[in-house]
Design a protein around this nucleic acid. Structure first.
Lengths: 213, 213, 213, 213
DNA sequence: GATGAATGAGGGTTCATTCAT
DNA sequence: CATGAATGAACCCTCATTCAT
């Protein structure tokens, strides 16, 4: 679906080999781990290697760079977005009916909240890099949300929104979904329940479809 | 208004003095400058000092830390949010009328877009730190948006939303406003005009007030 | 002739075997290749192995060391010096005649220029190591030029030079030949033709024979 | 005279200051020291700093690079070449007389031997880099010998050599001088006295002037 | 007030080299 | 014979930070 566009750069390296795959995976696991614990800025090759039970030199046999490892992790994120978000939107886009609108809106909202919670640290990296100029990671954000955006735009159009309105409206809605999902923890700790957030977002989605329908 | 909560630590480091104030300001200016240019990760005391025409040692006479300097810059951001966003919401909150709803919605949306554009680098720092664990900067985000959130919640209530609904709805709306504002550049470069975004957000705000009104 | 004195250490590391010989040769070829391209300092086992289509581990089955490989390459150089330089000098030494002096001088000069051009990268290594303290490679230079030096000394003696004069004179002449040959490229790119250099050196050789003859 | 052409790159750094100058000098001294002891390849910033009684970080405040430091040292070498070699040649060039030819030849030969002995490690670096491609150090060799070459060429011309002959002849003679000087230690340890070498070179210089005079 | 000078501390990377298969 | 995999050991370099002037 939208898997293209996010690719690691370590392609031309030697072919796997079972033991190697294992080591590589351990390194990736610890990269994610430490990203969760210390954040992007606190991510050190030395730490990753130690936690994975190997040495920095080994890390560099699998990844040219910390960002290389992050890109590898991002592939998983992209896959989840594909499955849980884009696919939902696409399904509804095929047969948009007023009856199912609410369940769709809820599903999509919940999907965002879930995927974002699962990959929160990575998402943060993406958001950060979307702003600051870092070549390789830079347009992951666009790639990530493109699919959902397109589907949503089509759905809005099918509900009678003009072309001029549909696109900005979908941008705005996706931004809402993404940002609430990104800050769900803060919001929850501010006393709002997760379901209430999902429901509030679903409401907004529904109104957006109906507004001038 | 909501200035509390964001405080610098460099308060009594040294008595003002005209020359000193000037140096301090040059340092702050260059901090902002370099933040814009190189991003948070690329911010170095040595660079700031050089650009400001002084030495690193001087930097440390005014700020204990790079984050100290950022906190000082954040005060300006907080002030702008106060004036352009919170104030707007507060004004409308005092006399919420259906007639003025649209103009309020537009004003608020445009306000976000404007303030976020002006302070985009700082905003990014706030967003980043909202996620990662960094003591002093951590809850700036909450502080920043608290005011608007509260006003909006009150307005939603005044339009008939129940207490249970108003709070999550305001969270969701503010998240939308903030995230669209944060990524306006990306969206515009994806072919959507700024005004269209503002208008789409205003629509969402309006629907939120009306939904069950 | 003078092959002794330069010896590799990898002699009985493994019995020949056709496939092995081939691999070994590929490694040597790429060693020379990379030496030409990147110079001595830029020579890495990993690179050699990759270029040769094998792995570092394989390199170590044939050579204990990068210097080991260089020593193997040096054997070829020594052979060329033997054939093209020492042999020429020896031939003339057997029957030194005033008539043939000039053609001898030219042949020797040209020989230096040619051999040095062919092996320039290796020569550079030799010159470098002649200065710095590196056990095994250290006296290759002496070995390399000993033969020519001896022959030339004998020839000078046969032209009437006293024992006291002949030796330093031959050293000086060989130094001239070697250094011009070593920097021929630089000199040519400074606008002097190769043949002019050869001829100028030949002149010096001839005068050396005649001076007090 | 020929000082231009060899310049350090650390120009735009802060102005000296007495203490700084001292540290810088200590660093340069130890750079030369360690170059003598361990050769170019064995030169490490950490060692230089330790020997100079400071830290690596300090080294980097004065030089961007080990090569930077070497370039600074080379300035001294260039000055010596200027004074002891080029100046001698220039003096004789002004009034070339057959009577003084021998004393000039001796003086120049001795000068080379002396200067090269004093700076032998640096000379070796220059020779090495003249071959391998290292941007900044690359044409120091040319710069170094240019002056002497030019003077010698003029002198040869004044002794009746045609333009076609004078230039290659001077190249050849300078190459002789430089290479004997560079390997004087090896030659001496091979049983030839320094004075004998000087005298042999002087003989060659003299013949070169007289050949067709 | 300002700053030259110095540095501890630490992260990034590279490479030669070794095993076990 | 060959090599995938792993790593110890260094080195390079940068930066925040501190003094003494």
């Amino acid at each position: 679906m939208l898997t293209d566009g996010v690719e690691t750069t370590d392609d031309e390296r030697r072919v796997p080999g079972t033991r190697g795959q294992l080591t590589r995976q351990k390194l990736l696991d610890q990269t994610r781990n430490l990203l969760d614990q210390n954040g992007f800025r606190g991510l050190r090759v030395a730490d990753i290697a130690r936690e994975a039970g190997t040495s920095p030199a080994t890390f560099y046999q699998y990844f040219g760079d910390i960002e290389d490892a992050l890109l590898a992790l991002l592939e998983q994120l992209v896959a989840d977005v594909d499955t849980q978000l884009h696919a939902v939107a696409e399904r509804y886009r095929a047969t948009p009916s007023a009856e199912e609108l609410e369940s769709f809106a809820n599903e999509l909202s919940a999907g965002f909240v879930e995927v974002w919670a699962k990959h929160r640290s990575l998402i943060r990296v993406v958001e950060l890099q979307a702003g600051e100029a870092e070549a390789r990671l830079k347009d992951v954000r666009r790639t990530l949300l493109n699919g959902v955006n397109d589907s949503l735009e089509a759905i809005l159009a099918s509900f009678g929104r003009t072309a001029d309105e549909a696109r900005p409206a979908s941008f705005v809605l996706v931004a809402m979904l993404a940002n609430v999902a990104a800050h769900q923890e803060g919001m929850i700790s501010a006393g709002v329940e997760r379901d209430a957030l999902i429901s509030a977002m679903a409401d907004q989605l529904v109104s957006a479809m109906k507004v001038k329908a």
